[in-house]
Design a protein around this nucleic acid. Structure first.
Lengths: 109, 109
DNA sequence: ATAAAATACTTTGTATTGCAAGGTACTGAA
DNA sequence: TTCAGTACCTTGCAATACAAAGTATTTTAT
């Protein structure tokens, strides 16, 4: 309940949205995604992202392809499926509603 | 992972922020808070809010006062403590950062 | 060749927390 | 005095963020 985990708490659920935004741009593999999230100031660790990617893949929202790397082991490049793109629209909408809610509560103060 | 709980997932952590926004306006009791959240389009149930209020109180961020009602049992009116007001500032800041992150990821698409 | 380092993916255990469902207690009216 | 209404609380479950440790592959250094 201390300030250490304010962002941690708040970003629950948001991480999924951010991951979709990144993958809607182009396919990426885990380390790639983590780097892009860091560039956007959202710290995420492997232990969080890998299970998330697996869940989304099992849910049919993501798919992946093994791509060989010139600098190490092969990588799983994830991309949105058609269903995933539909889902992203829902996430956009949900995000908009949350923002409306917060703005509504702010204004009425 | 289906659309049913998109908002549910995304609002995790946001609920706390919304509760603070409501209580920063004026003291309120649980049913009051739930009503205001509903007015702002955020559905919350008792089983979620009561433990949240208790956690925040135990964390020293909220305090309450028993106030008698003319229409039923007495009510616990919660209000922000000084520490709670500081915490709200942190929540505002964290929310701003999350927004920046999302906008950054949107723009770079 | 072989060991060490780097890279990438995975798994396990823990803590948090949203929620459904059910429970307790007080008040006032039929 | 029973019942409906209101308010607060608790229990059990599921989801998930994270730390930490583990497995596997590739590259680099010796």
């Amino acid at each position: 309940m201390k300030s250490d985990n304010v962002q941690s708490q708040m970003r629950k659920g948001v991480l999924e949205y951010c991951t979709f935004l990144i993958l809607s741009k182009r396919p990426a593999y885990a380390t790639d995604i983590i780097q892009q999230l860091q560039d956007a100031r959202l710290i995420v660790v492997e232990g969080t992202l890998y299970p998330l990617l697996t869940r989304l893949k099992n849910g049919g929202l993501l798919e992946y392809e093994w791509i060989e790397s010139t600098q190490g082991p092969p990588r799983k490049y994830y991309a949105l499926t058609g269903e995933g793109r539909e889902f992203l629209k829902e996430l956009e909408s949900a995000w908009g509603e949350i923002n409306d809610t917060i703005n509504h509560l702010k204004i009425n103060n």
